[in-house]
Amino acid sequence: MTWQLVVGVVVALAVVLLISSVRILREYERGVAFRLGRLRPALGPGVRLLVPGLDKLVRVDLRVVTLTIPPQEVITKDNVPARVNAVVLFQVTDPVQSVMTVENHAVATSQIAQTTLRSVVGRADLDTLLAHRADLNEDLAQSIAAQTAPWGVQVNVVEIKDVEIPEAMQRAMAREAEAERERRAKIINAHGELQASEELRQAADTLSRSPASLQLRYLQTLLELGADQNSTVVFPLPIDIIGPFLGKLPQLTEIFTNGRSNGTPPPREEPSDDTQASAERDGRG
């Protein structure tokens, strides 16, 4: 009876030891085992047996980790204060190095990302930070990856999420954008006036070759004026009608001026019969 009890206790202990020595690693996990402090080869996914009390297992996740960098107070190259935050996507490519070379690869990557973000943004001006964010993202990814590569950590993506600038700077940028829009509008208006003048010049050249077309255009203008119910009527006179009168105006002016200079009195008007009769009645009175 005693030996049966001993056998039962031994079997129970063996079962407990067997259960405690079994480790199950998922497909996205790798195991780094140490036996009496000595590094063993990395363990793949599946059921793994370890010696209780002698082996220690460290699980390493190989999935992509999303790391949010908190807002950082930075000063750009043109001395503009800003708050910048970003997101970093990284994953472990060498589980042994991620355990052997750094205490906590996630915390270390976060700290490196924060310092690199402040450094890279500090070398760029505000316009580059707002308009050329893709170049800054690439520079950030290369700088962070160069420092995390010895840890067995691969940085895949670094994206600047948000850039906060002071309200005074936002108002100044709004005024600058408005002035730029007005400048473009004036340039477009000037180009339109130039093209319109060119078209009018070509139309005038075409009409000058044919007097009949000019007369038709004149009649069409009169028709358009008569179609509207306006209180004011503008009646244009063609230049070919008043042209002869304008040509003789200097001659008439010269004749009148020469007559006054020679002392010739202007022609006197003879009084009419009604005027003489009125004067006689006034004299009798």
Rank of each mutant, 00 (worst) to 15 (best):
R40H: 13
L36K: 12
I19N: 09
V32L: 04
R26T: 14
A33I: 14
V15I: 13
G37H: 00
P45N: 10
R23V: 03
L18G: 15
R23M: 01
L18N: 15
V47I: 15
L25K: 02
S20N: 13
R30T: 00
R40S: 09
Y28V: 08
R48Q: 09
V15A: 14
V16R: 04
L36Q: 11
V16I: 12
I19H: 15
G46C: 03
E29L: 02
I24D: 03
A42V: 15
R48I: 06
E29M: 03
G37N: 07
E29N: 04
R38D: 14
Y28A: 09
L39P: 13
A33W: 08
V32A: 01
R40Q: 15
I19V: 14
L25T: 00
L18R: 09
I24F: 07
R48S: 09
E27D: 13
G46K: 05
S20A: 13
V15N: 01
V15H: 08
R23D: 02
G46W: 05
V22G: 14
R38N: 13
I24S: 06
P41S: 00
V16E: 07
R23Q: 08
L49Y: 12
I24N: 05
R35Q: 12
L18K: 10
F34N: 03
F34L: 12
Y28W: 10
I24L: 11
A42R: 00
S20M: 12
V47A: 11
V47G: 06
L36V: 06
R26W: 10
L36A: 13
R30G: 02
R26A: 12
R30W: 09
S21I: 02
L17D: 07
S21T: 08
V32W: 04
V22D: 08
